[in-house]
């Protein structure tokens, strides 16, 4: 049953994504930026999906510390990995856009820097997990670090904003004038990303569960 649901969700995400790509390809080029503007239909939704993942990682980490239930630890690591992939997609799409519009792949602008710092923070979370063998200690320490990382993110964003900013102001939810069907395309793409994120997270969760089962079987085998 769960298998089927996962396949259906995955298929729905794929179909929606394919539909969105077709629709977005059919839009006329933006007046100032041309075709490259369309990258924003992916750039913004993956950023939002990544933020959602960070929030879910916080919830998973706090719940693990409160309940000591390993399900929450598995949730935290799964969403962190998926979130990192989304944030990487955000950085890459932004970089491609920057190459065309600014002429450079990267600039040490506020948003770019804070996104990179976030990426490094959560990559550190995965590195920390890899370095610890004992499951309970790994889950506890990782949860503590995840909480630290989440608290740090807003401070990073605000402080870097004071430092310098060159990133364009928000287009979709910042008072820009966007045609209705473009707006809808962005929302639908966000939906596609969220679906994709859920499917990936659930797949990763089951992997984590299987891993824990293997570990416990191995321990039982060694005990005899």
């Amino acid at each position: 049953m769960r298998d089927k649901l996962l396949f259906v969700l995955g298929a729905a995400a794929m179909v929606l994504l394919a539909r969105n790509i077709l629709v977005i390809a059919g839009f006329p080029n933006e007046a100032n930026q041309g075709a490259i503007f369309k990258i924003i239909f992916f750039h913004v939704p993956v950023a939002m999906a990544a933020m959602g993942c960070a929030a879910a990682a916080l919830v998973g980490s706090v719940m693990f510390l409160l309940t000591r239930n390993f399900k929450y630890d598995a949730l935290a690591v799964s969403v962190t990995e998926v979130g990192l992939a989304f944030l990487a997609a955000n950085l890459v799409t932004g970089s491609i856009w920057g190459r065309v519009i600014w002429g450079i792949w990267w600039t040490w602008d506020a948003r770019l820097t804070s996104a990179l710092v976030c990426w490094l923070l959560y990559a550190g979370y995965l590195m920390l997990r890899h370095a610890i063998e004992e499951p309970t200690q790994r889950a506890t320490f990782a949860a503590v670090f995840s909480i630290f990382a989440f608290i740090d993110v807003p401070i990073v964003i605000f402080s870097i904003k004071w430092w310098r900013t060159q990133h364009p102001q928000p287009v979709f939810w910042g008072g820009g004038s966007i045609p209705g069907d473009w707006y809808l395309a962005a929302v639908l793409n966000l939906l596609a990303m969220v679906l994709l994120g859920i499917v990936l997270t659930v797949a990763r969760l089951r992997q984590e569960e299987a891993q824990r089962e293997i570990d416990s079987l191995r321990r039982t085998a060694h005990a005899f």
């Binding site: 923070l121 590195m127 920390l128 990382a149 740090d152 605000f158």
Partner: peptide, 8 residues
Amino acid sequence: LTYPILVP
């Protein structure tokens, strides 16, 4: 782990 947290 320390340096990214310490960025701000």
